[in-house]
Simulated scan of single mutants.
Amino acid sequence: MQRRNFVQQLALAAGTLAVPRLTSANAKVKEADLSTDKPFNLNYAIHDGMFRSHAGDDFIEQIKFAHSMGFRAIEDNGMMARPVEQQKKIGETLARLGMQMGVFVITSQNWHWKTSLTTGKQEFIDLMVKDCREAVEVAKRCGAKWMTVVPGNYERSLSHDLQTANVINALRKGAGILEPHGLVMVLEALSDNPDLFLRHTHQTYMICKAVNSPSCKFLFDMYHMQRNEGDIIKNIDRTWDETPYFQIGDNPGRNEPGTGEMNYRNIFRHIHSKGFKGVLGMEHGNARPGKEGELALIKAYRDADNFL
């Protein structure tokens, strides 16, 4: 779709697409804001597939489209599995557009679905080291700084404290590989099932302090933390000095802001007021399918980002 036609469609959507919970403030969002490519107040990162209906299946084209809508970052969990040439092409595209690369998942296997670093087994420590070394090269190709790490499942044959010690030991080894390159693993606490070891802000914060490296920090996924504990703004403050990266998703549903119970305009305002200059990953789905859903998502972000 040509940009002028898309702008006309988006302007029309501004008057017809309702966004739950933020509708009372919609009058404050000018139609010009919805049809411009001006950057947002915070740096929201799209992912592959988010704008497929407008830009097609090619992630590069989706990145270009997102840039034309004001987004200035991406994240890509599966970057390590992409061909080397594609990693380079994504990095080159981001550099040319002045966009930022967010996280990719550092682990080559789905550790969080099986017992792993919590056990202290050498096979998992070796895998951690191998993956960190590979991640250094991937980061160079795509211009990344942050990469997601999940320690794995709870090991019920060991005490919680022994598992914590095992995780800290493994993460120190990984951080030692990343630190000389200025790269940062960000630990993600999850809510997918109760067997996961890392689930809470205070737990993740403590592990980051214990690893004691600039290359081991907290990925604050607000969707998961809303499900596990709530109190989002206070917990952001409590863990602020170990949190260089956020991810977004409304609850329930794990879709764009305004589709669930979370007041993302207030959350974004708070994060912005603290001087945050990093990336906020849009790790969620589109509440509606097709082009209409993509227009609604853009409008939802313009609404939630309208906090100044």
Rank of each mutant, 00 (worst) to 15 (best):
A144T: 03
E134L: 08
P39T: 01
L42G: 01
D58L: 06
Q122A: 14
S108R: 13
D131R: 02
D58R: 15
N77S: 11
G56T: 12
G143K: 00
T115S: 11
G102F: 07
M128W: 13
I168M: 09
E155Q: 10
R82A: 00
E134I: 08
K89R: 10
C142T: 15
G143P: 14
W146I: 15
H160S: 14
R156G: 15
G152E: 01
K140S: 09
L162C: 11
K89E: 12
E85F: 08
Q163K: 07
L117V: 06
K145C: 03
S68L: 08
N77D: 10
Y44E: 05
R52S: 14
Q87T: 00
G120F: 03
G143L: 04
V136M: 08
M99N: 01
E85P: 09
E123P: 02
G56N: 11
M50T: 07
M79G: 09
N110P: 11
N41F: 11
Y154V: 14
A135L: 00
I125D: 10
G176A: 09
D161H: 12
G56L: 08
K64V: 06
F40A: 00
E123C: 07
H47V: 14
F104H: 01
N41G: 11
M147G: 05
M80K: 15
K145H: 10
A165P: 08
C132A: 07
L127V: 13
K140Y: 04
K173A: 04
P83Y: 05
M147S: 07
E137Y: 02
G143I: 09
K130H: 15
S108Y: 00
I63E: 06
T164S: 12
M101T: 05
G120W: 02
S108C: 08
L94F: 04
V103M: 08
I60W: 09
E61M: 07
T115E: 05
H54V: 10
G152P: 02
G176L: 03
V167F: 04
D126R: 06
A73R: 06
G98Y: 01
I90S: 01
G152C: 07
